[in-house]
Every structure is written in C-alpha cells, then in structure tokens.
Design a protein around this nucleic acid. Sequence first.
DNA 1: CATTATGGGTTCCAAAATAGAACCTGTCAA
DNA 2: TTGACAGGTTCTATTTTGGAACCCATAATG
Lengths: 165, 165
Amino acid sequence: MRWEEIDSQVCSIARALAIFGDRWTLLIIRDAFRRVRRFSEFQKSLGITKHRLSDRLTRLVDSGILEKRMYDEKRSRYEYRLTAKGLDLYPVLMSVVNWGDKWVCDEDGSPVVFTHTQCGHTCHPKMVCDVCDGEIVATDIEPSVGPGVAQKVSRGDWSPAMGES
Amino acid sequence: MRWEEIDSQVCSIARALAIFGDRWTLLIIRDAFRRVRRFSEFQKSLGITKHRLSDRLTRLVDSGILEKRMYDEKRSRYEYRLTAKGLDLYPVLMSVVNWGDKWVCDEDGSPVVFTHTQCGHTCHPKMVCDVCDGEIVATDIEPSVGPGVAQKVSRGDWSPAMGES
DNA sequence: CATTATGGGTTCCAAAATAGAACCTGTCAA
DNA sequence: TTGACAGGTTCTATTTTGGAACCCATAATG
C-alpha cells in the first residue's frame, strides 16, 4: 500500500496520521503552538529546507489545520495560524511531551514545564476516563466496534476483510 | 537539518518524533496495541512492504518500544510485543483517536468505541490537569523553561541560539 | 520421497521524497 | 544604487520507499 492510501482505512488513527504522521509536520505544529507564525521563523526554528517547509505549510493549510492570513497588504506577507482544528491537536502534542519527558529526556529533567492558568499550578497533564475520572492505562481499555463501522457493515459498504476493525 | 539530527534538540517532542514521527511507525504501534504480534500479521494489516516493516520493527526494538520474543524454538519464530515504554504510548494513540474521531471521521460515527474496564462504561478519554482536574485546552497552558534547559544554561552547555526553548 | 506452503526475512531496481544550494521577485532602507 | 529581507521556486544529488523476486528452514501434502 502506498502511504497516500492509508487514509482510506476506516480508522481515525490512520486518517489523522495521513495528515500529520510524516517527518516534520508535527514539529511544524509544535512550533505553531509556540507562536511561530512566519515562514522564515519556521525555517530558522526547524532547520528544514524552504522547499519542504513550503510544501508542508501548504498541506497543513489545505487540511484545515493552519490558516494563511495576510499581515502586510503591500508586500503580501502571510502568517500561518492554528485553526480550531489545529488547536485541538494540543492533547496530542501534550501526550507526546509527557512520554518524551519520561522516556527520552536526559538527566537534567524536562526541558519545558507547563503552568495551568486556570488553577495557577505547574501541571503534568494526564489522560482520564470522562466517566469515572480514573487515569487511562492501556490495559484498562477494551475497544469494540463503533457506529462508524457497524453502519457500514449493515449497509454492506464494508467487511472486516477490507481493512482494519 | 537532516531528520536524523532532530533528536539533538533539547525537546521531548523532537526526541519522541525521532523515534515514531515517520510514516508507518505509529501505525505499527497502533497494531501492536491491537495485539498484532507477528511479522506476517503486521504486513497483512498494514499493507507495508516487508522491507519497510523489517526496518521499522528493528528500529522499534532498538529503541525499546517493542521486544522480540521467540515463540517457536525449532523454527526460530519471533513475536513483537510492547514493552513498558511502548505501552506508555497509549495516551498518544488515544489523543490521536480523539482528534481523528472529531475531525476526520465520516458521518457514520467513530469506527471504534472504548470501554473503561475499571468503571465499566464507554468512555471518551480526555486530558486534564493533575492538580485541579480541569480539562486541558491549548489556551490555558503557559509553557516555561524547565530544569532540563535551566541546568544546561547554568553549566554553559546550551544557549537559546542553539535551538529550541 | 518430491513437492509445495509458510514464516520471516534479504536483495535488487525503479520511483518518489528530501537536502542543499542557487535563483527569483517585490519592497524597503541606507 | 546597492543591498537586505521575506517568501518563495527550480535544480541536482542523495535517500527513502514500493514492489517484486529470491532465500532458507521446517512442515504439511501427495
């Protein structure tokens, strides 16, 4: 299978990764959360080639994660800003930070700490069940077929042989 | 900058993505959480070429996310299983699922639903502050320099010009 | 016993993606 | 007038990838 076809799977992970699951894209989004907004700022921060950056920014705009906004009419200069869809990626980045801080950071400690302005404290975001508030651990979750698959099966659009459950 | 150099940054995201931030790797990890364990099962599920798969599995074993365990002495057959380091990636996958369910799934609804065995309910994992239990939203978090950078600066190992804050 | 299937790869080649450098274009500041 | 800057595009050499073919040990089949 070609990488471009992976988003044909009925799988939210595959479809999401089709957008940001390649080299550089998630780092660009990380920078966007740090208020990096201009082409040259991204380039300096990432050390990515202009060509790659141009391509990645265009894709991110096309997929609705960034929006391109003119900030200088005369010189037609643009900024790239996160949309609501992009801002919603925050928990993804946060969970990557958490994992990285635990498993791949050196002995000095984590490079960045986070303050939750709602409560004023330094916080370590964690993932919890929205029903019982218990922390989510892999072994406590049991996946099962959801409506997105069930309805396709009942219409005959889909059978398990086609791909992922 | 070459992709192989990105993990030289003092940034947990960059270092984490150096391991799983490329095409296929996170999908392999997804499958591992679905109890896919053998080479041929991964291949069938992903449609990836054997060559790629072999390379990615080796990297994942080298970086301690999967372990290779013999299950048939005579034929020297191996299974790949998540280590503790790998199992800890669950919140990353979960936050990708959440985002994908919200933004890139079709109208039938989400393909998979999750039951939290601790409480027995279908759940939608969410990210919260570990101090006040408030849900984490991008605009409520203020990052600041952490010990991992502060100590390097005080030792003279690092200056902001070198890379990321 | 010869043949074929299976799991888990490796080797080879052509096609696609990438890095790095050079170039372009329009404005502005000295 | 010259140069700098932002924001690109074009070019080429190198890597990475996809696809197919091949390999090897065991096991099942005829």
